[in-house]
Design a protein around this nucleic acid. Structure first.
Length: 454
RNA sequence: GGCGCGGUGGCGGAGUGGUGACGCAGAGGUCUGCAAAACCUCGUACACCGGUUCAAUUCCGGUCCGCGCCUCCA
């Protein structure tokens, strides 16, 4: 097996990965702000880092995967108000939905899913340290991080403070000493959620929770910090600033990994364009979460992903093909995960290459028909979070479109087999046609007739 | 304007300094009562222009086109 190589946003190079503590890999990934259904753009990092989590767990004795839940945020406040729901109800409900949807995508639970509201004290403590060290200041009830206090600010996104100030599209708040300064703590009105702090009742800024929760649950520095590419700036850049200045550490995380953006039918996904697609809505359409997972894995994580209906159809067909190759597999047989699959994933999570290996394994299984080869395919696919369903169950699908129950179908097949035995092919073909028209595919083989839904 | 990414066959999408991954779709064949599935075969793909090289889709430079980020969006 080759070593794991990961593209590091910090160095913009693909590097050999080695954990700081050889016995314990520590990874932090930015999770959801729980105010609405998870959309496809949210689903991508979940699948990407789930693959990484599985791979690391295979390579190292212990992995701690932290994915935070942002449950205090101005978008949440706005959504709760709009829906006439309490913030607590909204965030709890949304989080439960998120877990269900991501579970449908075959994502394992992270080791820890800390909530921002449960770490307010940790955040306040960090802000106090930043104040003491002269990296932060109070102004009009806000506490701000003073960017010029950190000489090498911008190391992740490779931009100078001047670049940012010049490119600023938003009006700079008058109380900022420097246009690039960002909020650590802000005041809350009576209606807004707030916590007592040395600077009065207020709530945390966006970035501070990740600095607090990663330090608490992983320790600084840790191994891998992940998220969408849009988080490079300002979110991760600011996290780095807060963490390094408060901890006095050279780095927050050894590696930073970022997944590419997801668009829909060639366009940016946005509410204003009306092409906002949630995972929940696709599941509701009857699209299996596993098919979505497979589709998301067909492109390398670092590349932009264009979600299309055509692409989803292709992915489902490809996945069906794998399931056909698995027919008759013994789920309990057990087999080693082939090295070539692990090698593909060790190459900076090359999931398209790994899926290609799956298809090669399927071809081998089809050619040989042996239990061993089927088992290898099963083990390989399961490692990637696929094949959660038994092959026959997957292929038969659910009785919806055709309105025929499994028993109805079996009865017609039996009737057709009788017709065949009597060489009454006209009758046999009539039954086949009836079932084909209902969206079913019959497959005659030496031992009988199997069927599946299109 | 700054930073970054990309342009591969009908479609999706890896990859490589010199034998055209893999999947979807399509064509032919084997098999089959007919089918389906499977298997076999079939594609003169690497935006454009220069340069380096024995050899470039792969390296370098330029051009064109597309995309992301630039203060709270994964």
């Amino acid at each position: 097996m080759t070593t794991l190589r990961i593209h590091n946003t910090l160095t913009q190079k693909t590097e050999d990965f080695a954990p700081i503590d050889p016995g314990h890999v520590r990874m932090y990934v930015c999770g959801p702000t729980v105010y609405d259904f998870a959309h496809l753009g949210n689903a991508r990092p979940v699948v990407v880092f789930d693959i990484l989590f599985r791979l690391l767990s295979r390579l190292y004795p212990k992995v701690t995967y932290v994915r935070n839940v942002t449950d205090v945020d101005d978008k949440i406040i706005a959504a709760a108000k709009e829906k006439g729901e309490s913030i607590g109800d909204l965030t709890q409900r949304t989080y439960a939905q998120y877990k269900a949807d991501m579970g449908a995508l075959g994502a394992l639970d992270p080791t820890v899913e800390p909530k921002a509201t449960q770490h307010i004290g940790d955040m306040i403590a960090i802000i106090q340290v930043l104040m003491e060290k002269g990296n932060a200041y109070e102004a009009e009830g806000h506490v701000l991080f003073h960017v010029p206090s950190m000489p090498d600010y911008g190391m992740l996104s490779k931009r100078s403070r001047d670049d940012m100030v010049m490119g600023a599209r938003v009006e700079v708040a008058p109380y900022k000493r420097d246009p690039a300064d960002f909020v650590l703590w802000k005041p809350s009105t009576d209606e807004q959620p707030g916590w007592e702090s040395p600077w009065g009742r207020g709530r945390p800024g966006w970035h501070i929770e990740c600095s607090a929760m990663s330090a608490k649950h992983l320790g600084i520095p840790f191994d891998i910090h992940g998220g969408g590419i849009d988080l490079v700036f300002p979110h991760h850049e600011n996290e780095i600033a807060q963490t390094r200045c408060s901890c006095g550490s050279d780095s927050m995380s050894r590696f930073f990994m970022h997944n590419g953006h997801l668009g829909v039918e060639g366009q940016k996904m946005s509410k204003s364009l009306g092409n906002f697609i949630t995972v929940h809505q696709l599941l509701d359409e009857g699209i299996p979460g596993e098919a979505l997972r497979y589709y998301l894995m067909t492109a390398h994580y670092s590349q932009p992903f264009d979600f299309t209906r055509e692409g989803l159809t292709q992915a489902r067909a490809a996945l069906d093909k794998l399931y056909i190759a698995l027919r008759g597999v013994d789920a309990n047989a057990g087999a080693d995960i082939p090295d070539r699959l692990l090698n593909a994933l060790c190459d900076d999570l090359n999931t398209p290459k790994a899926l290609a290996e799956l298809h090669k394994l399927a071809k081998e299984a089809n050619k040989s028909g042996t239990v061993e080869n089927k088992s290898r395919l099963l083990a390989a696919g399961r490692f990637m979070g696929l094949f959660a369903t038994a092959p026959e169950e997957w292929l038969r699908g659910t009785a919806e479109a055709d309105g025929l129950s499994d028993a109805d179908i079996e009865k017609m097949i039996t009737e057709r087999l009788e017709a065949k035995a009597e060489k009454n092919f006209v009758r046999a073909d009539a039954i086949r046609k009836e079932l084909t028209d209902a969206g079913l595919i019959l497959e005659d083989n030496p031992t009988g007739t199997t069927w599946r839904r299109k």
